[in-house]
Design a binder for these strands. Sequence first.
DNA 1: CGACATATTGAGATCCATCAACCAATGTGG
DNA 2: CCACATTGGTTGATGGATCTCAATATGTCG
Lengths: 188, 188
Amino acid sequence: MKTYLIKINSFIEQLDHKTLSALNDISKQKTYKKGDFLLRQDEVCRTSFGLEAGILRKFYLNDGKEITTELLFADNIAISFESYTMQTPSKEFIQALTDTAVSQIDFTAFQNAKTNFPKLLELDLFMTEYYAMWLENRMFEFHTLDATQRYLLLMKEEPRIIQYVPVTYIASYLGISLETLSRIRAKI
Amino acid sequence: MKTYLIKINSFIEQLDHKTLSALNDISKQKTYKKGDFLLRQDEVCRTSFGLEAGILRKFYLNDGKEITTELLFADNIAISFESYTMQTPSKEFIQALTDTAVSQIDFTAFQNAKTNFPKLLELDLFMTEYYAMWLENRMFEFHTLDATQRYLLLMKEEPRIIQYVPVTYIASYLGISLETLSRIRAKI
DNA sequence: CGACATATTGAGATCCATCAACCAATGTGG
DNA sequence: CCACATTGGTTGATGGATCTCAATATGTCG
C-alpha cells in the first residue's frame, strides 16, 4: 500500500509546468498555533490542508467523548473527507496538536482546476484511492486485532505517533480506553 | 452519503453516447452459480464485477476463519479494492452466495478507456469517493457502537442483508461471533 | 429417512470499560 | 517562592460484554 504513495509522489514530480503552477496559484500558505481548530463540527470543509509542518488531529464527538480518527504529520493532506467531498456540514473537527504550517486549497478552485488540467483529476483519484486503501487497512485492524496487537502494530508502522502524540489521543485513535492503553504500555 | 449515489447515477445517465458505448464495448456479461468464486486469494483482481442479479460476498481468511468484508446486491460493483487498484495479489475472495449475473470490465481496458473518455475518469473518482465514505461510515460504526447497536443499524439500513444472507456471514460482517449474534436476535 | 450444514442455547473464561484514587509535572496567583 | 490548581498519566477493583467450547436443535437436500 505504501508503494502507492511513491507512485503518487513521482506522478506529482512529473507534472507539467502549467499544471503545477495552476496548483500553486490556488494554494494559500497559512499557519496555526497549537490548539487552534482548522475546522469545527457543523462547518463545511471548504479547503484541503496540505500539512507542511506540525501535527494535526481529526476527531468527532460521540456521547461527549472525543474520538480521534486520524493523526497527521508533514506531507499528509487533512480534510474531513465526507464534508469536503459532498460540501456538507462536517461531523469532524480538525485541530492542531502543535504549531503548524499548511498549504490550503479551496474546494471550488480545485474543482475548476481539475476541469482545465485533467492531470489533477487523475491526481485526485490516486489520492482518494490511497485514502480508501488506508481505511480498508484500518478496518482490517479493528476486525482482527485486539488492543495490544493494535498498539504494537502502531508502534511498528507509525512510531512518530507514539513519540509525539499524547496517549489520550492515541487511545481513542486505537479505539480503546485511556486506562487500558496505560496498562498495555506498562506490560511491554 | 446516499445522496452521492443519486449524483453518480444521474452522472451516468447524462453521459454522452460515445462514452457509454466505449464502456459497453469493454463489458462482458457472465454468470456464476451459487458457491462459485469470482476471485480467490492470491489472484490479482483483473476485472471489476458490476452485479446485475444475485448476491456476492467479499471475505478474507484470518487464523483460518472467514471474515466477511462486504455483502453486495444488484447495482453494486464488486472488486477487491487494493488488489484491483494496485494490480497486486488479493487478500480477499469474492464468492457468489446465489446464482449471479455480472458485467465484467477488464482493468487495463478501463484504464485505456479513461484516457480516451475523461468522463470515465471522473466516474471512477466518484465511485472511489463513495467507497471511501462507505468505509469511513463503517469505521465509525465499529468505533462507537456495540454488537446489538450494529445489528439494529444493519436491520434498518440494509434489510436485504438480514433477509437473504445466512447469519454466519452477517456475524462476521458485523465483527461479532455467531453465538453472540444469535443471542442478540433472540432478545429482539 | 439419514446426513451434513446451519442455528440456538448454556456455562465458563477473558478482555476491556468504568469508576475512583493516586501520582508527577507544570503553571499560576498571591 | 511557595501553596495549590490543573493537566496528563498510572494503578486498582469491579462488572459487563463478548468469546470460546460444548451440547443440542433445526433445517435442508439427496
